[in-house]
Amino acid sequence: MSIQRLMCCSLLIVSTCLAGVACSPTLEAQAQQAPQLQEGEPEGAFCGGIAAFQCAEGLVCVDDPNDGCDTNQGGADCGGICRKEKRRACTGREPGQRFISRDPNQCAVIRYFCEEGFEPFSNDCGCGCQKIKKACDYKDPTLTFVSKDPTQCLAITFLCPKGSVQFFNDCGCGCQQVDNACDYSDPTRSYISLDPGECTLINFLCAEGTPFFDRCGCGCQLSP
């Protein structure tokens, strides 16, 4: 091929690029050139598109419902608008909550009732019934709190001095002074449960001694 012909081809390619027919920047170049929105820019600013415009910190890019571009319908390089990032104020593991549905959209159309002592709740994690919280009396002189966090109470172990018993409720856990308190250090007693409520649900046999069940719990009593 002659030098003259090569020069003609080069001029043709340059002319085509200048006319905007080809030679578009690469995706990597577009990303590098995409301007970042500055902190404090308002919600609703343009984002995305072929230039991949970014939203300011704390905002996310969502589809613009007012344009005709839909990525689900074959649209490519659709633009969007910046919206505040929605953060859920729940975890779905809050104590005292019983979920009927974990789909907020379904929660909007279903009807349900809660048993006595519970009330309905609905949040970003779903809906259901939660235990009605009673006012806590942290000034009760008969109560010594080990923790005021019911969730933490499930993970800790503690003993109460003679003349008091353990308590666990929605306000926390600790030791409560009582008359004729339970003596959990009695060597003649082997406890299966310290919860009288739980004792009503379990069956057990004693290899030694005889079964007992009272306000202190249940287990096996050895002969003195």
Score class of each variant (00 low, 15 high):
Gly49Trp: 06
Leu194Gln: 13
Cys23Lys: 07
Cys220Leu: 03
Gln30Met: 12
Cys82Leu: 02
Ala155Gln: 13
Cys107Phe: 07
Cys82Thr: 00
Pro120Ser: 05
Glu116Val: 03
Ile13Glu: 08
Cys61Tyr: 07
Ala22Trp: 11
Gly174Ser: 02
Ser2Lys: 05
Gly128Ile: 09
Gly219Ala: 09
Cys47Gly: 03
Asp63Tyr: 00
Val14Glu: 10
Asp77Phe: 14
Cys127Met: 03
Asp64Cys: 03
Gln176Ile: 06
Ser10Trp: 13
Ala56Lys: 09
Lys134Trp: 00
Lys86His: 12
Asp70Trp: 03
Asp149Trp: 07
Phe118Arg: 11
Cys136Thr: 04
Ala181Met: 02
Phe213His: 10
Pro25His: 02
Glu119Gly: 03
Leu59Asn: 11
Glu43Thr: 08
Tyr138Asp: 04
Phe158Cys: 05
Arg111Cys: 00
Ile202Thr: 12
Pro35Thr: 02
Val21Ala: 07
Asp140Val: 09
Cys9Asn: 10
Asp64Ile: 02
Gly172Val: 03
Tyr191His: 06
Phe204Leu: 08
Met1Arg: 06
Ile13Thr: 07
Asn123Glu: 04
Ala89Arg: 13
Gly117Asp: 01
Asp103Ala: 08
Leu37Asn: 12
Pro25Gly: 01
Cys114Tyr: 05
Glu85Gln: 15
Ser164Asn: 06
Asp149Val: 02
Leu18Arg: 11
Gln152Ala: 14
Thr26Gln: 09
Leu11Phe: 13
Cys69Ala: 08
Cys127Leu: 04
Leu154Asn: 14
Ala207Tyr: 08
Val109Gln: 13
Pro161Phe: 06
Val14Pro: 00
Phe213Tyr: 14
Phe204Lys: 07
Gly40Glu: 10
Arg102Trp: 01
Gly58Tyr: 10
Phe53Val: 09
Tyr112Val: 02
Ala56Ser: 15
Cys220Gln: 03
Ser101Cys: 09
Gly40Pro: 04
Arg87Pro: 00
Phe204Ile: 13
Val178Gly: 00
